[in-house]
């Protein structure tokens, strides 16, 4: 029987700090519905974040929660998962936190295929510091540090993380909230490293500077520019210009890191026993 999201919230800490219309609350709702759909025990869930708007999420969640340093959530989470593999470790991070300062940890955690689910709240801007461009800001967009328009190309973060070795990579949007929660549930249920990029809106900084004044406009933009994977497969390159695919983008089966290390311990202890015998 599905619990309301309030079951997973530290309600005394609400309302949250995110601006009116910010998509982070929608993505967080999707995360909680995903956790609920899997029937996880609150005590076994550990949510880790770095620094930024999205990274304030754990404070509102009734789990083991850890708000770390900018970009390092996945490295902290690696330590938690190694020390206590039975925990469901979920990292909530923004596009700047994960793909800029945190990029090195992101690709290495994927390469190791350690059992961590990372949900990247991608609003293509640094919101907490009020509007600088990020590695996910589209070329040409305006930002406080791109007053002449962003001259950089954003990552395709899902391709990047999948190429690095992740077991499950998907992309969803705040608009397609129900699909997003299903993708996140699948990610959490995946044993290895799983990554979900959640396209979400920052009306306050990205929208205002890039003629999308309201959250509603930004959600409509998401609806009009998102193409489900199956549909995209039938579309030409020209038709896909300016669009992005949503759904499951990459799955593979690789041994999970802490399981592999458990085998190392077994070997080491067997050798030890033989020596002592």
């Amino acid at each position: 029987m599905a619990m309301p999201v309030t079951h997973y919230l530290r309600t005394s800490k609400m309302p949250h700090i995110w601006c009116a219309g910010c998509g982070h609350g929608i993505v967080l709702g999707a995360v909680l519905r995903a956790i609920d759909s899997l029937g996880l025990d609150k005590d076994e869930v550990c949510v880790v974040s770095g620094i930024g708007c999205a990274s304030r999420a754990p404070g509102y969640l009734d789990f083991n929660t850890l708000h770390t340093t900018h970009g390092r959530a996945i490295a902290f989470a690696t330590g938690i998962k190694m020390a206590k593999p039975e925990l469901k470790v979920i990292v909530l991070t923004g596009d700047g936190d994960a793909a800029a300062i945190g990029g090195n940890h992101l690709i290495h955690a994927a390469r190791r295929n350690i059992g961590i689910t990372t949900v990247c709240f991608n609003n293509s801007i640094y919101g907490m510091t009020s509007g600088q461009y990020s590695p996910m800001t589209p070329t040409g967009s305006l930002a406080s540090t791109a007053p002449y328009g962003n001259i950089e190309e954003p990552f395709d973060l899902c391709d990047l993380v999948y190429a690095a070795g992740a077991s499950y990579v998907a992309r969803g949007t705040a608009y397609h909230a129900l699909l997003l929660s299903k993708l996140i549930a699948k990610a959490i249920a995946t044993e290895g490293f799983s990554f979900v990029e959640a396209i979400t809106q920052c009306p306050t900084y990205y929208g205002r500077r890039n003629n999308m004044r309201s959250a509603v406009d930004m959600l409509k933009w998401q609806k009009e520019h998102a193409v489900p994977v199956a549909a995209a497969a039938k579309m030409s390159a020209e038709e896909l210009v300016g669009k992005f695919r949503i759904g499951e983008l990459g799955t593979r089966t690789r041994p999970e890191y802490t399981r592999r290390y458990a085998a190392v311990i077994e070997t080491a202890q067997k050798e030890e026993a033989e020596q002592d015998a």
């Binding site: 999201v5 609400m14 949250h16 609350g25 929608i26 709702g29 999707a30 705040a174 608009y175 909230a177």
Partner: peptide, 10 residues
């Protein structure tokens, strides 16, 4: 309910 960013709707 699922689109409310404030988790305010049930």
């Amino acid at each position: 309910e699922i689109m409310c960013p404030d988790l305010a709707i049930v």
